[in-house]
Amino acid sequence: MTAPSVPVLAYENVRKRFGSFTALNGVSLEVAHGEVVCLIGPSGSGKSTLLRCTNGLETIDGGRILLDGAPLPPDAAGMRRVRRRMGMVFQNFELFPHRTAIANVMSGPLTVLRMPRSEAEHRAETLLDKVGLADKAKSYPADLSGGQQQRVAIARALATEPEVMLFDEPTSALDPETIGEVLGVMKQLADEGMTMVVVTHEMTFARRVANRVAVLERGALVELGPPAQIFEQPQVARTRDFLSHLGWSG
């Protein structure tokens, strides 16, 4: 465990290019222990890219990313160890369709942590209960609604006991009725003190749950501050433009 003064995640001047397209143009940001940071901004602004660079699904072209003060290791084995300490939740849930819900949640502990089966099973049951799906343990993803699948996905990410949870537009693929159940689980996690970085379009969630909101546009951090500032008194014109585009009236 880290001393609370060292940020859990630190992005130092992170750059990322895809061919000739610059996705991230020197983004710097710190996420403190227990903090919830929401990344908002127009599509193509680099929010998802930043998240995917955090756990090494994309490699960065410049700058550094640090977890608990240590830079992300360049080698594959080191990166794998780092990923155990982060949990990621995807827009398309990405549950493994050939496994039951509980088997999905056990994937991390069994394969990656090499935990004994009974222990992994116990942990998975506890987590499924936590997200309200204890009765769906033996169901396959195809038999679950979108909201249920995403909650299982959250449980799966929590199973390796990560220090930080990364959410990549977790509710964008959900029907409106089920968005609430997923946001509810995320709020519960935040209240329990989990460090979270959330890319989202759900402004109400950001307003209520985030400690700080980061606005990205075209690969650059445009504004950073508490929700009250961003949503009610934005300092930067581009933030105002973005929010008014969304019809956000505060």
Binding site: N55, G56, R84, F90, G108, T111, V112, A157, T160
Partner: peptide, 22 residues
């Protein structure tokens, strides 16, 4: 789908494990 291997990698699996398990 690429997302499947990404989800497996995000859990910390090695490339070989991703292939074998997912």
């Amino acid at each position: 789908r690429k997302g499947q291997s990404e989800a497996a990698l995000a859990l910390g699996m090695s490339r070989a494990q991703v292939m074998r398990e997912v």
